[in-house]
Design a protein around this nucleic acid. Structure first.
Length: 666
DNA sequence: CCTCTGCCTG
DNA sequence: CAGGCAGAGG
């Protein structure tokens, strides 16, 4: 966004770049001049250049975003909005030359190629060294030294660019002659080896930084939540208007929660992320985490603001947000992603990934759900977007299973990336298994020992089941992963979520035009409670469905079909009982081991991960008795003999648990 | 009339 | 499961 004049000039002038004519010529030139040539001279140049090429790709994606322009992108562009990084630590400086550092002007462009190569090489080395040099962010001396070195290399870089654009434009740049430093010594092989080692150490560092960062943040945020509220309010007052400032303040808010060292980690990780090819995905993760945390912070603020103004109740109970399952969809995504990263070609995915995350922020403030069409079409194949308010923000996925209830399978460890993926696709507030409602103490208990606040529903511990864990057991993994995400321990009531979802196009997308397999599964489970749900009940329990005549009748039809199957089974088993010579109705019972129950369970609860309420067994037994009696009494000769039974059964409906009302209950 | 239901069929 | 149909009920 804040392209300075000189920056634009750079773009323009670089259009004369020999090899490329694309809009991103500068990048192209940048790449070729800064990286490819010199690195190609190394034996492992291909690796590095590949890495750097990916950096360019990244940058391109980021270039479209104001958020990254202010910080991350500056590293490569050599230009930056000073104000946007003024609060950041020196680490950034390494990558962000700023406008005031003296740069060598070299209109003549007569530098020997050797100096060139060395300068470029030095730059890469410096950046790497900076990253590896002080992982704890306390070796300031080292930092400064690196900065000095980096400044030199930056100068080389600038000079390089200038060489391309200056033949015509005699830029009035300030600065002295370049000191193309070549502090390196040794052969190219040594260089190569050094680089390799540095790369490895950087990888390790990145991991450490990630961990530390997460720790620090998750520790801090709980303590600072209250203070941050006030801070945020003040900040909003003092800072400029507009969404952008909002987000900036959110970022600062986010950063305030981190220690200074952590901030340095973050900055370093940004830089490293652009350099280290192998850590590409991790870098993406980090970036996404930051952005997501920002988003969550903002949402929290909104919620609290609204709460404080409306005096709403934030009781955790009212927010039994269940976990939407992602199931195979996400699994597939995940797999493909992993496969991609293995094949080292995740660019396309990233390209489709980051921009969306950004759009999410860009649009979250002003855009109405209806306006959001383009951006999401990439993430979501289903174009239909309806503004219906929904309790649980979920985004439509490119899968027929819409609503993507997010499933945490115990047998499947979740990675941050998966959570992030979910967050990105379904919004920060798509439940991670009712996270907000559960006490932190439950978070890390063993999944099997978790006692969930479910009265009527108890999950059967079918760990191996890859199917729906319909009813969550939400917290165990969900909360943990959220912790790892450094997300604040948000306690958001569903109503608040809804209001957020209403305002946030990205989160209101889970409202579906039509019914999906998830809805069908939910309906089947509901059948355990009610055989004859009224349309009102259906509307109540499918809040994420945009009801119309067609949808309603379809849902009703479902239950009609359920009943049909149910009664067929009843009749079948009743007749079987008669055939078996059972003479007493009392001898007919329906237990969980009975064949009848198995048949029914197989139909309505195929995954067998839902604990069927005892009441359903009672009703089934009663129904079976009714059929037995009727058949025994030869009433089945009457064409409408079943109707009497229906009348009895329809009175046995019980209330569907409130938990089913959660839109993404499954 | 509309809604809901059940039955039949594919 | 969904579509079509007919019938009951408001």
């Amino acid at each position: 966004m804040n392209l300075s004049l000189s920056d634009q000039n750079m773009h323009n002038s670089s259009e004369s770049c020999i090899e490329d004519d694309k809009p991103d010529v500068m990048l192209q030139c940048f790449r070729r001049n800064m990286y490819d040539e010199p690195l190609a001279s190394y034996s492992n140049g291909s690796i590095i250049s590949q890495l750097l090429r990916k950096t360019i790709h990244n940058k391109r994606a980021l270039d479209e975003s104001p958020f990254y322009l202010s910080s991350s992108t500056a590293a490569d562009s050599g230009q930056e909005d000073q104000s946007s990084v003024s609060s950041k630590d020196s680490t950034v400086e390494v990558a962000s030359p700023g406008g005031h550092i003296s740069t060598g002007t070299s209109p003549d462009g007569e530098h020997p190629v050797n100096d060139h190569l060395q300068a470029k090489r030095a730059r890469v080395e410096n950046i790497i060294r900076v990253m590896a040099g002080s992982p704890n962010g306390k070796q300031h001396g080292e930092n400064e030294r690196c900065e000095a070195e980096a400044r030199d290399t930056r100068e080389a870089y600038r000079e390089n660019k200038r060489k391309q654009r200056l033949p015509q434009h005699q830029e009035h740049s300030v600065g002295g002659p370049v000191s193309s430093n070549s502090d390196n010594c040794g052969t190219k092989d040594e260089e190569c080896h050094k680089l390799k080692e540095q790369l490895h150490s950087m990888q390790r560092l990145l991991r450490q930084l990630q961990e530390k960062f997460l720790q620090v943040y998750s520790q801090d945020d709980s303590e600072q939540d209250n203070r941050d509220e006030a801070d945020m309010a003040a900040e909003h007052d003092t800072q400029g208007e507009g969404t952008e400032s909002r987000y900036i303040s959110a970022e600062e808010d986010f950063e305030r929660k981190s220690s200074r060292g952590t901030r340095e980690y973050k900055e370093r990780m940004k830089v490293v992320g652009y350099l280290v090819h192998q850590r590409e995905s991790q870098n993406l993760q980090e970036t996404l985490k930051q952005e997501l945390s920002r988003a969550v912070n903002e949402c929290v603020d909104r919620v609290f603001k609204k709460v404080s103004s409306s005096g709403l109740d934030l009781s955790p109970q009212s927010c039994m947000c269940s976990s939407p399952e992602m199931q195979m969809s996400v699994g597939a995504d995940r797999k493909s992603q992993q496969a991609n990263s293995i094949q080292e070609q995740p660019q396309s995915e990233e390209a489709a990934f980051k921009p969306h995350a950004l759009e999410y922020y860009e649009n979250s403030e002003a855009q109405s759900p209806q306006d959001q069409t383009e951006a999401l079409s990439l993430v979501v194949r289903k174009p239909a977007v309806t503004p219906l308010s929904s309790v649980t923000p979920t985004v439509k996925r490119p899968y027929p299973v819409h609503q993507t209830p997010f499933q945490f399978n115990y047998s499947t460890p979740l990675h941050d990336s998966q959570i992030l993926e979910h967050l990105l696709k379904y919004g920060p507030h798509s439940n991670f298994g009712g996270l907000p409602c559960l006490p932190p103490s439950m978070d890390r208990t063993s999944p099997d020992s978790v006692d969930l606040p479910w009265d009527t529903i108890n999950m059967r511990s079918k760990v191996t089941s890859s199917h729906l864990n319909h009813h969550s057991r939400p917290s165990a993994l969900g909360a943990v992963t959220v912790d790892n995400l450094c997300l604040p321990h948000v306690k958001i009531e569903c109503g608040e979520l809804q209001s957020i979802a209403e305002r946030n196009p990205y989160m209101s997308l889970n409202i579906q035009e039509g019914l999906t397999p998830s809805h069908l599964k939910k309906a089947k489970l509901m059948f355990f409670y009610t055989r004859y749900p009224s349309s009102n009940v259906l509307k109540t329990f499918f809040p994420d469905v945009k009801f119309n005549r067609c949808i309603t009748s379809q849902l009703i039809k479902w239950f009609s079909n359920f009943r049909e199957f149910y009664y067929i089974q009843m009749e079948k088993f009743a007749r079987q009982a008669i055939v078996d010579g059972i003479s007493e109705v009392k001898d007919i019972t329906v237990g969980r081991d009975s064949e009848l129950f198995r048949a029914l369970n197989m139909h309505y609860n195929k995954a067998n991960d839902f604990h069927v309420p005892d009441r359903f067994l009672e009703v089934a037994e009663i129904t079976l008795h009714e059929f037995y009696n009727a058949i025994s009494a030869a009433k089945d000769s009457d064409p409408s003999w079943k109707k009497a039974i229906y009348k009895v059964i329809c009175k046995l409906d019980s209330d569907v648990p409130e938990e089913f009302k959660t839109s993404s209950y499954l």
